[in-house]
């Protein structure tokens, strides 16, 4: 996913002189190295100074540039929060803030490196668009949109490397619209976003194997503006809707889907699975940490029936 992001940025940067990358001490890899070497005047490393990263990006955008700020998610959003709010969102500038390794993917690095509340925090700011693509190809689409079409600030979650391709037979990618990755004949629909999407596929497969109920899977890659209409339609069309998200229970997709369910008087069986509202002091693999939060196939299945 990280490579597709850098590839897309480099390709667009070849022809669009407004594209620039501002990083905070992240060593460039893949196409980001090419970007730095081929467009040195459009690559800035601010060092461990994230407030400066956002402020400089704002200043560059005020002069017509379309900057991408890039560092580990906790540092790209939380540390310079007021710069993001005032400099980017209040002035509505076309700057994309990339949150690398969002969620709890840096499992053994501890709570300081876990980004569990970013969707709630970023979504709370007026003018902000919030994206979380689920696989490398969706990342490419989203990056292209940020670079070429967005007219305001974006916060975008980015995974690490090696995520599987999940969108090969998906609907067209459209910002602000939910996207069917798989349309099943059954009465179950799973909503998810970001790299935990793989769990939605695994869950669908197990449900099919056990009950021959073919679930649909949707990528809610745009968390803000949320496709309320599309989600309303899902709540009307399926008897069971499952939300899986790598985010605390409040302020993310789960709570928003519950709001929509109330608004449309949905009587579907809605089940949400999120990270716990807790700092968990546990040092194991990414799937093991997710499991500690209750995000495992076994736990989800046990609560579905």
């Amino acid at each position: 996913m990280r490579n597709k992001f850098a590839d897309a940025l480099y390709e667009i940067g070849k022809t669009d002189q407004r594209i620039c990358a501002i990083v905070a001490d992240i060593s460039p890899a893949g196409s980001m190295v090419n970007f730095r070497e081929d467009f040195p005047e459009r690559f800035i490393n601010c060092g461990v100074a994230e407030q400066s990263m956002i402020g400089i990006a704002a200043g560059m955008a005020l002069k017509g540039m379309r900057p991408f700020c890039y560092t580990i998610a906790t540092f790209s959003l939380y540390r310079p929060f007021e710069m993001i709010r005032d400099d980017l969102c209040y002035q509505n500038l076309p700057v994309t803030v990339i949150g690398m390794g969002a969620g709890v993917v840096y499992s053994t690095l501890g709570g300081t490196h876990h980004t569990m509340e970013d969707i709630a925090i970023a979504s709370a700011i007026p003018n902000m668009t919030v994206l979380s693509p689920c696989d490398p190809n969706e990342m490419k689409h989203a990056t292209t949109w940020c670079a070429t079409e967005s007219n305001g600030p974006v916060y975008m979650r980015l995974g690490k490397v090696g995520e599987p391709d999940l969108t090969a037979s998906a609907d067209e990618f459209k910002i602000g619209k939910i996207r069917y990755l798989k349309k099943g004949a059954g009465d179950i629909c799973i909503l998810s976003y970001g790299i935990i999407m793989k769990m939605a596929f695994d869950l669908a497969e197990e449900i099919y194997n056990e009950k021959q109920n073919e679930a649909s899977i949707i990528s809610v890659h745009t968390l803000k503006p949320l496709d309320k209409e599309g989600i309303s339609e899902v709540l009307k069309s399926y008897s069971k809707v499952i939300v899986i998200e790598e985010h605390v229970p409040h302020g993310g997709l789960s709570s928003r889907v519950k709001e929509i369910a109330l608004d449309v008087n949905s009587n579907c069986d809605l089940k949400v699975f999120t990270l716990e509202d807790k700092f968990i002091h546990f040092y194991g693999s990414y799937p093991e940490l997710l499991e500690k939060h209750g995000l495992s196939l076994k736990n989800i299945k046990s609560k579905l029936d």
Binding site: Q17, C20, E41, R42, I44, Q51, S52, I54, G55, I56, A57, A58, G59, M60, A61, L62, K63, G64, M65, E82, M83, D86, D87
Partner: peptide
Amino acid sequence: HGLGMAVGMAYTEKYV
């Protein structure tokens, strides 16, 4: 906030 934006503006004017 102003100095960061001023640095970004100055950089763009001078180098880009």
